[in-house]
Design a protein around this nucleic acid. Sequence first.
DNA 1: GATTGGCACTCGGTAGTCGTGAGTGCCAGG
DNA 2: CCTGGCACTCACGACTACCGAGTGCCAATC
Lengths: 340, 340
Amino acid sequence: MVEDRKLAVLRAIVEDYVATHEPVGSKSLVERHQLGVSPATVRNDMAALEEEGLIAQPHTSAGRIPTDKGYRLFVDRLSQLKPLRPAERRAITTFLEGAVDLDDVVQRSVRLLAQLTRQVAIVQYPTLSRSTVRHVELVTLSSSRLLVILILSTGRIEQRVVEVPDSLHDERVAGFRTLLNRAVMGERIADAAERLADLPEDVEPAGRPVLSALVAALVEAMSDHRSDERVMVGGTANLTRFGDGFEVSIQPLLEALEEHVLLLKLLGEASSPATLTVRIGSEVPYEGLGATSVVATGYGPGAEALANLGVLGPTRMDYPGAMASVRAVAQYLSKILDES
Amino acid sequence: MVEDRKLAVLRAIVEDYVATHEPVGSKSLVERHQLGVSPATVRNDMAALEEEGLIAQPHTSAGRIPTDKGYRLFVDRLSQLKPLRPAERRAITTFLEGAVDLDDVVQRSVRLLAQLTRQVAIVQYPTLSRSTVRHVELVTLSSSRLLVILILSTGRIEQRVVEVPDSLHDERVAGFRTLLNRAVMGERIADAAERLADLPEDVEPAGRPVLSALVAALVEAMSDHRSDERVMVGGTANLTRFGDGFEVSIQPLLEALEEHVLLLKLLGEASSPATLTVRIGSEVPYEGLGATSVVATGYGPGAEALANLGVLGPTRMDYPGAMASVRAVAQYLSKILDES
DNA sequence: GATTGGCACTCGGTAGTCGTGAGTGCCAGG
DNA sequence: CCTGGCACTCACGACTACCGAGTGCCAATC
């Protein structure tokens, strides 16, 4: 039971510190929480918690703040998802339902997440690698140039301009179009790329150079890791509440937020929508962005995650709230994608 | 000639202040510039300049800083575009040429501009209203749902999902496709929307409900002002050098940068690529983002501007440099768009 | 008339001092 | 195991003093 009280103290410290952003002392703790013991007792517990590396004092004679390890314990054992308020649930559904296309969906998700958590929100576009091909379209730009459009099941669209060796009649373009579509429609990206590679051999020799060019463009678009790295960021204004004046400079943070490749690493491997990943402070796999935490999860129709989304905030963030918001947005987003 | 020296003093003040971010005094002025007169003389000139409202002192006993009016005079009469260094020219061409699609072009432009000017860069996507229709594509998603894709001359692509009343054979879809393309291909957006409105009447009655739905989606996509409002922002990390600790808080700035509608207003009416718009401090048509200036211009193939781009920075920015960079990027960007 | 050196004055910023109070650790008694 | 008491620490705010860059003005000079 002593052990229990120690954990209760830790929870109280985390909650108070998150709320006030100030080191919390033994006296104010017993005042604000019904712990049923005196400040002195709490002080003993605090000393023990500090011994275990769960809390620390910024100055010799100040209150305690949780360490990364303390937050970790809090997240793992002491907190449960804060249920969203009905107004928030409603906001999520109505806001996401108005979206007209994929860009819009992603953008709305970012804004929503940023508003709900009051942190920086990051949403990754659905990855190419797990999409299937819905359609391939060819559009004649000029006599020797074609626009190749790749439409994917997730709503993503990739386009490339292809220079073709000789000018093409509409009928020939149509022929290539059906040929390509027959080969890849409905296939997953990885398989589609393979199918395409074999195509040129099946066609009469005259058409091979053109088809090769088209195939090359498509394969390139499919395997373009650059476009797998697309993310959208929002709520950067929330960074200003990050370090209440002290501690972290937001300069490196802003820089990091422009490095989309880095953000993808922060979001981590696409995980199932069912699991929430919480990385706290030093657990964040990137040096140099100060005392930050990341709460992320995957989203996508079905159990397999298409991509990730999450929020980035100070280690002293409201984990239960952020976790609930992230999960809720991921769920609704998955549903939207499922429907479309 | 006295008048001339006064202007020389103003120029020196602007240049020094931009370089050091500190109020500049009479003594340091004569030290750093060859004015050929004593500090006392400069002080007299400064008093006159202050009288005219071109400079001001932040505190009773400190150096002078230029006022908005002072910057205005500097920009209009005392500065000329700073020629880009060869390395910068090279960076622009090589960087922009690697782009694969419109998104990429815009993103690269933003990064480039942010790097060159070390300010916040804003690039607007080519406006719908001045584009022409390159192609309309229909893709069957399910028996009762079609994906309508609108491909524009500027490389922009808009997509909408349409629920159609009854299920459609491929041939019928193909029929609608050719019908639609025949009506709008090559037309400017505004004209295309008109053409579409008349379409349903020319078709046999059975097809009307479906066609109407398709037309409605297309017209909606064409007139969607929301998607006209697309901009990309970059270099926000440069905001931290904005007020060197003092003066402006970057919170409202970060908020403003997420308000894309607002940014479009800041960029102003799409102007010809030949003209540079410089808005200084209070001239910026939006209260509440502190001491900011905007340097913007239009871009697009030919003389008519498709959209705008520019940078946003503190009033104490390097105008000659920023103006040169903005113009250079706009020119190269126009060329890229012209070619594709 | 323009320029200049001299001079008194202003005032923001830095450094030093001091008191206050929240918070701590420890200990002895319940 | 808990608690009240007590001495100690130390960040922070208030106050003061000082310094120096910069100014305005004026009389002398070119």
